[in-house]
Design a protein around this nucleic acid. Structure first.
Length: 171
DNA sequence: GCCAACGTTGGC
DNA sequence: GCCAACGTTGGC
């Protein structure tokens, strides 16, 4: 039963989807997410069309690798899940915000965000170096030369493989 | 701090 | 529509 006039968009019985989202830990780290109310945050500030479109494709329950970019070391540091599907990113409306964009207005929003909730922080971050050494994940968007996409899909087999890495001892 | 790769902007 | 200039991303 659905109340409040909200469209029910949760992906019923179809397969879960997997994603990877980048954040610079100096701006917002997975530890910040851990400390946030309900361990939930809105993912604001995405100003790239491809990344935005991937967020628009997300459904409640989709799972996300939380990646630390521009970090020492760059690494997948944990898992989160989508708890609210794409809605307008209000930070684009605020001229004082660093992510302000005059092309986006409340009447015609251009940029969206989703809400995500922490599932877990890996004991051992899976570093970019380690991923590069692993042929199981060689086709990941993250590893493509010159790739800068901050929101990107992850294949189910890549997701499963990386979870097994996270369960192992570091090397 | 450096710089390659990328996306966007704007002049023409 | 082309493309140079510019700003940003993000590994190193």
């Amino acid at each position: 039963m659905d109340h409040g006039g909200h469209k029910r968009t949760q992906r019923g019985t179809t397969k879960a989807r997997y994603w990877l989202m980048k954040s610079e830990p100096r701006a917002f780290s997975i530890q910040d997410l851990q400390k946030a109310p309900r361990q939930t945050t809105c993912w604001d500030g995405v100003r790239n069309y491809q990344a935005r479109n991937f967020m628009r494709a997300m459904a409640i329950g989709d799972q996300i690798f939380f990646y630390h970019s521009n970090a020492e070391p760059p690494a997948i540091v944990g898992i989160a899940e989508v708890v609210r599907e794409a809605y307008p990113d209000h930070t684009a409306f605020d001229p004082r915000d660093t992510h302000y964009d005059s092309k986006s207005t409340p009447e015609k929003p251009l940029w969206d965000m989703v809400d995500i909730r922490l599932i877990r922080v890996f004991d051992t971050p899976i570093t970019l170096t380690r991923l590069r050494e692993d042929f199981h994940v060689k086709h990941m968007e993250l590893l493509r030369k010159g790739s800068r996409l901050s929101v990107q899909p992850v294949r189910a087999e890549e997701w499963r493989h990386i979870l097994t890495l996270a369960a192992k001892k570091p090397y």
